[in-house]
Amino acid sequence: MKFNIASFGAGLLFGFGLLVSGMANPEKVLGFLDIAGQWDPSLAFVMGGAVLVGLFAFTIARKRTLSFLGFNMRLPESDRPDKRLVLGSVLFGAGWGLAGFCPGPGLVALGAGETGALVFVVAMVAGMGIFEVIEKNRVAN
């Protein structure tokens, strides 16, 4: 129960952060990605602010085996880049640059009642489903 309440709270906070920062606005994101046009560098400050706080949090997290609510710390173990990481990030970057949406802002814009965000999120979940099917076949062969 504690775990789920904390999850809801973290999701809510994340959503507020995306709204305050301007990340939830695809046109703002595209303005950031358009270096050759009228460039709006604002969103570099989003990543900067988030990582600034994150550095402290993960420094503490790394030293613990249990979270402050008593759950196991689940930090990723692998740190070796591979082909899948790069290829996946290429596909993601292309999708991000086409419409200005990444997963979080898509959800927030959906909550705001934007039809375009609904289209994006449904297609994104379908894409994730396609990935699962491909993975299942790969493992089966």
Partner: peptide
């Protein structure tokens, strides 16, 4: 269009969310 302060503030809120999630739930 440049909005460094709201971008920074939003980024800090996002960072606090990520911090809360790892420190409370370990995720």
């Amino acid at each position: 269009n440049f909005t460094p302060w709201s971008a920074l503030a939003g980024g800090i809120i996002i960072g606090l969310s990520a911090a809360a999630f790892i420190l409370l739930n370990g995720r």
